[in-house]
């Protein structure tokens, strides 16, 4: 683990000095995570590929302005911002429906019927498809924050830096997003075994 960190630090140092191959190595390790993250913000593979590629080129050109810290968080910030810009542009052109207000209150929906346990749900493709669908129904910023936490494992502070908002906003987005996904699953008849 420490060796990996040291190797990444050495690569980052070389990339900051303008060594293209070092940047490529760094970027290659983040290609998959960046793509899945941007894909879930945009919803289409072709757009996600373009945005990630643009983000990588932009990151390379901006290496001189990288001030240190987490390179992963830095490049995620570039990609996330670009992806959200694309969503907003689509919305302005009327290609996407208006999102629910981000600050709309989300209540705890009561289960209609006793259903499957979450552990069982997680093993089912249908349940995962329901989660994907529920994520797509969230406002883009909320969706981005939730995925940065639950899929990419960033801390709240890092998410605040990536999305350029206060930590309080991050807490709110993550909680509301999770609750909305939970409500979709409950509406499909699933409930926790403790209930």
């Amino acid at each position: 683990m420490q060796q990996d960190a040291a190797a990444s630090a050495a690569l980052l140092d070389r990339a900051r000095r303008g060594e293209g191959r070092a940047f490529e190595d760094l970027a290659r390790g983040l290609e998959g995570p960046l793509f899945r993250h941007v894909l879930r913000i945009l919803g289409t593979s072709a757009d996600a590929e373009d945005v990630v590629q643009d983000a990588m080129v932009s990151a390379w050109r901006s290496m001189s302005s990288f001030e240190g810290g987490s390179f992963r968080a830095w490049i995620f910030r570039i990609a996330t911002n670009r992806a959200i810009d694309v969503v907003r542009a689509r919305r302005r052109r009327g290609e996407l429906p208006l999102e629910p207000p981000e600050d709309a209150e989300v209540e705890w929906a009561e289960p209609a019927d006793p259903g499957l346990e979450p552990a069982e749900i997680a093993s089912q493709a249908e349940a995962l498809a329901a989660v994907e669908e529920a994520l797509l129904g969230l406002p883009a910023e909320q969706r981005a924050a939730l995925m940065l936490r639950d899929i990419e494992g960033f801390s709240y502070e890092e998410i605040a830096g990536i999305t350029a908002v206060e930590i309080g906003t991050v807490k709110s987005r993550i909680h509301r997003g999770r609750l909305a996904v939970r409500n979709v699953l409950v509406a499909r008849g699933w409930r926790s075994s403790a209930g």
Binding site: G20, R21, F23, E24, A27, R28, E31, G32, P33, L34, F35, R36, L39, R40, S45, A48, E49, V52, Q53, M56, V57, W60, E117, P118, A119, I121, A122, A127, L128, V131, E132, L135, L146, M147, R149, D150, I151, R178, L179, V181, R182, L185, V186, R191, S192, S193, A194
Partner: peptide, 26 residues
């Protein structure tokens, strides 16, 4: 418990791969 299960399911989502390399050739 429900929030924990929800977070677990989100984390369990599949990781799609891009159809081409997105790393610029530098």
């Amino acid at each position: 418990a429900e929030l924990r299960a929800t977070a677990t399911m989100i984390a369990a989502l599949p990781s799609p791969r891009p159809s081409r390399s997105l790393v610029p050739s530098l």
